[in-house]
Design a protein around this nucleic acid. Structure first.
Lengths: 342, 342
DNA sequence: ACTGGCACTCAGTTCACCGGAGTGCCAACC
DNA sequence: GGTTGGCACTCCGGTGAACTGAGTGCCAGT
């Protein structure tokens, strides 16, 4: 009993099951795939695969369905990330070009990915800490109130209202503005803290209270995990495949409404981008409660070599992994390219 | 046969049906409500209500359920918008206070409303055209590239990258900045166009090309319907009540993913705020395809007298209208108050 | 090592049956 | 005239028996 054929049988089972959503039996397999052996032989292989824990039968006289471990083997050893078709690639380009600002880019990207994969898509905003400051602006709203606007080179804009302990004159404001610009424009967000900690020293005792407040707000903006924003689309795709989820769509939808959960699903952005294969987390490998029947395919995107954030799709374990992986990779690449051009 | 009692029967039917989700019969009614008459009499009333088209029987020997018209009468004539309970009111305050910026306010508001009503909640961003300009800022990104940042008094920030036909010097840039600030700071967005149309006249022929580009981008930012942003939460609540929707949740989720649809659902913000009762659109009254089995309860919110945008909830026709209306009103009021303080 | 044959298992469907909830109507009552 | 109890009728939904068919596991033969 050759190892090769057994894996071929596993692949056939995964492919058929993903296509039909029904347990697949030995006869159907021998008819639809050219395995060159009879159903009886396939049954022997299936028994072996079942012993290995790669497939399972929902009940005695039904066909087999892949287990999470079966999908794992399929993803790791039996599938290649194929390229997208030409129409799909042009779809990506036409869909994403013409976005007017970062919000627009993100929302188009997530909808595109949902449409390509027919799954729920997630896209994380470019990480603030991994980008650089394009400009920091202070706008006077009232005598004791400023608006602090931080613009990152990815196009991302963060703003905070600053309540000053006392009024700040125009001249102080413009000096502060200049000083801030000198110190942080063009600097990586992660280094901003170090650059501004002694900023107040250049000001008189009178002025310091206001300056300190501004600096504190700036640090807050830079550090905060609020930076990690994730947008999501395609929840309607959950409904069509609801039958898979044992307890209906509810727990899944619920989990997906939590930003924290989305972040955990996507995982950490890794530094090296080149040659990355999408990360696939299958079923129980996923530690988020309520999502143990789903898989996540995700990948970092970024400019050049450097990862900025992640994007991916969430779907039932019996999703079409090759398509999902190909789409995720293609979209991540194009998005990275777009952000680099900005 | 008194009109009053017939309406009391209708009210009882609506209330019971909303509570149990099951057709309600005459016996159950006489037991659970003190109508003071026997089931037989109630049956007579029910027959009359059915003739009027306010209730219907799913089949011969079942109880009755309200029709869309029945809900209409219930909402218009039989229900008052009761005040929220004290814990609910404190929940609103604690939930919304501590938001750091407008995005945060919007996302907290929509989640709050979803939680209070256990429905899908919608909140529209404060309309740009109805607010005033707090500040317009130009940030040089590159010799031929500017970032135009428009900050509205609601805290809303819009940004656009401007590609200049030729490089713009520092002095021109700062003159342009000053001129812009003079003309539009503190002005209603709707009047910005009129204020800047002749801006280029104050510049030399050389300078004009750049100025015109900036002005054009500003107008685009101000006019665009892109301004109408709607956030949504609570889609998980759809799943628990999925049984109501004939064709499952799918068409509903799909419709809710379209921004345009959300806007149509919420409707136009009306000018007068005071004493407003939430607008209720019931079942087929709703023209959006795929949502003919849902109702929408919505209301304008704003600062002082003036409406800025709308918020509301979407749910099955058999939702608890009094609760939905009360929650929508309370949240709209508090949100208006918060934005006024900014 | 592969194959055909065969007995066995078990989900899902169909069908008939029954109980219960609810109605509509009628005759009696106040 | 409005209200009530009584009663025949309808029809949904649940239960259980019988049947079908897909699929398996195993064995003996090649």
């Amino acid at each position: 009993m050759s190892e090769d054929r057994r894996l071929a049988v596993l692949r056939a089972i995964v492919e058929d099951y993903v296509a039909t959503h029904e347990p697949v039996g030995s006869r159907a397999l021998s008819e639809r795939h050219s395995l060159g052996v009879s159903p009886a032989t396939i049954r022997n292989d299936m028994a072996a695969l079942e012993d290995e824990g790669l497939i399972a039968a929902p009940h005695t006289s039904a066909g087999r369905i892949p287990t999470d471990r079966g999908y794992r083997v399929f993803v790791d050893r039996l599938s290649t990330v194929k390229a997208l078709s030409a129409p799909e690639r042009t779809a990506i380009v036409t869909f994403l070009d013409g976005a007017v600002d970062l919000d627009d880019v993100m929302s188009r990207t997530v909808r595109l990915l949902a449409q390509l994969t027919r799954q729920v898509a997630l896209v994380q905003y470019p990480s603030l800490t991994r980008s650089t400051v394009r400009h920091v602006e202070l706008v006077a709203l009232a005598p004791t109130r400023l608006l602090l606007v931080l613009i990152a080179d990815t196009g991302r804009v963060e703003q905070r209202v600053v309540e000053l302990p006392r009024a700040m004159g125009d001249s102080l404001l413009s000096r502060l503005r200049t000083q801030l610009a000198e110190r942080v424009d063009g600097i990586r967000l992660s280094e901003v803290a170090a650059r501004v900690e002694d900023l107040a020293e250049g000001f008189t005792a009178d002025e310091r209270a206001g300056v300190v407040t501004v600096v504190a707000t700036l640090l807050e903006t830079v550090v905060e995990r609020h930076e990690e924003r994730v947008v999501l689309a395609g929840t309607a795709n959950l409904a069509t495949i609801a039958t898979d989820f044992i307890g209906s769509v509810h727990p899944v939808l619920e989990a997906l409404e939590e930003q924290m959960v989305l972040l955990r699903l996507l995982g950490e952005a890794n530094e090296a981008l080149e040659g990355q294969r999408p990360t696939v987390r299958i079923g129980h490998e996923n530690t988020v409660e309520g999502l143990s029947a789903t898989s996540v395919v995700s990948l970092s995107y970024g400019r050049g070599e450097e990862a900025m954030a992640r994007l991916g799709v969430v779907g039932p374990t019996r999703m079409d992994y090759p398509v999902a992986m190909a789409s995720v990779r293609a979209v991540a690449r194009y998005l990275g390219k777009m952000l680099a051009e900005q």
